[in-house]
């Protein structure tokens, strides 16, 4: 479980997060939703120790994020931020191979190579493995970054808007892959999604944020309701059902 208590965060005088206490359940897919500027990415980045903690406490599977050595955390959780421009000229296979770094610190073994091949395969990147990052499309590069986080082989996977640049079929494939990780291997995933229907279709647990506060959290069915969403986005929103899951409609 990821436990967040009394988390506050300021950027240049502006209060981005106000006293947040919440948790991401283990073995579930947790989606962070909310309008622009709600603080979703900031929250995820703080959990992933990409930004230093100012106030409050976060533990990931019992590891206090501010005190546990970063190399140890890297074997517990993998986080993929939004900033994926890389100056080095790398092949896709090389990038994905970096995902194994926390386990071998520069001396990869046969096991590591197998995991990399597996990750490339899982994201349909094997045919592109020898291409350079700047020679593939934005969506392919995005998949390579996700594959790197995947290769890190951690119990927790945190993804900040991983669906950026992905077309519908690859977005769907990614969500299905994450679902599979959770259901068959007992891993846990937290992600920020913009397109709310991906949360509606795949998430177990939803945290809805607005203006740096949590508006609602709980089972997807309980949070993705007309009342909560209309309030969250300040717009009339209808929620239907499709194959037993909520379906969010904005042309209400």
């Amino acid at each position: 479980m990821i436990q967040i208590s009394n988390l506050g965060h300021k950027i240049g005088g502006a209060q981005i997060l106000h006293d947040i206490t919440t948790s991401f359940p283990k073995g579930k897919l947790t989606a962070l939703i909310g309008p622009n500027g709600a603080g979703k990415s900031t929250l995820l980045r703080l959990v992933g120790r990409l930004d230093p903690l100012q106030q409050g406490e976060i533990t990931v599977a019992g590891h206090d994020v501010s005190r546990t050595p970063t190399e140890e955390l890297a074997r517990v959780m993998a986080i993929l931020g939004q900033q994926t421009a890389i100056a080095s000229r790398l092949r896709l296979s090389e990038l994905v191979a970096f995902g194994r770094w926390p386990h071998h610190q520069g001396r990869p073994g046969a096991d590591d190579r197998a995991k990399v091949a597996q990750a490339l395969d899982a994201f349909a990147l094997t045919p592109l493995a020898n291409r350079f990052l700047d020679e593939v499309s934005g969506g392919q590069a995005q998949r390579a970054h996700i594959a790197m986080a995947f290769a890190q082989d951690t119990d927790w996977l945190l993804l900040d808007e991983p669906l950026n640049n992905l077309d519908m079929s690859h977005a769907r494939a990614l969500m299905a892959r994450l679902r599979d990780l959770i259901d068959t291997q007992g891993r846990s995933v937290g992600l920020v999604v913009h397109e709310i229907n991906y949360a509606a279709a795949w998430a177990d647990h939803v945290i809805a944020m607005k203006d740096g506060r949590i508006m609602a959290e709980g089972f997807a069915d309980d949070v993705l309701t007309e009342a909560v969403l209309s309030d969250l986005y300040d717009a009339p929103i209808a929620v239907g059902r499709h194959q037993g899951r909520p379906l969010v409609l904005h042309h209400a």
């Binding site: 992933g48 970063t70 890297a74 074997r75 890389i86 100056a87 986080a149 890190q152």
Partner: peptide, 10 residues
């Protein structure tokens, strides 16, 4: 790789 990936990789 840049700061974010490096931090993520520990």
């Amino acid at each position: 790789l840049g700061r974010e990936p490096a931090v993520s990789l520990g």
